[in-house]
């Protein structure tokens, strides 16, 4: 899945970003398994032993493959707070680039 959009060919520069990127690739890799085990462990129509098995399987998955471990980080600086999803950058970098006019469609205005 990740090779389709070049997941391995994306090289973030910041240390935190590299870590986060690894998490993302793992999450992508184990997504189907995670969903399957989660759904099976939640299904009340199954016998409880089977549900327990799936719960154990779920706990055996690598921890970094969890989607909750992923943090949206600034692509340029690795900042974890005030990151705009649309531009994938922090407010500071965004303001810098927007002031320079490097972002298409972004214009400064006040009213």
């Amino acid at each position: 899945m990740s090779t389709k959009n070049g997941g391995e060919n994306r090289f973030p520069l910041e240390t935190r970003n590299i870590r986060d990127h690894k998490c993302r690739l793992l999450a992508d890799k184990f997504e189907l398994k995670r969903i399957f085990h989660k759904a099976m462990s939640k299904d009340n129509s199954l016998p409880s032993e089977m549900r327990d098995e799936h719960r154990i399987e779920l706990s055996k998955l690598p921890r970094n493959s969890s989607f909750t471990r992923i943090v949206n980080r600034c692509v340029f600086t690795g900042r974890a707070r005030a990151v705009y999803k649309m531009f994938r950058m922090s407010r500071i970098v965004f303001r810098d680039l927007a002031d320079k006019g490097a972002l298409t469609g972004v214009k400064k205005s006040s009213w």
Binding site: S2, N5, G7, R10, D28, F67, V75
Partner: peptide
């Protein structure tokens, strides 16, 4: 997953 992995 695919969308998440394509953040960077």
């Amino acid at each position: 997953g695919e969308k998440v992995a394509a953040w960077y």
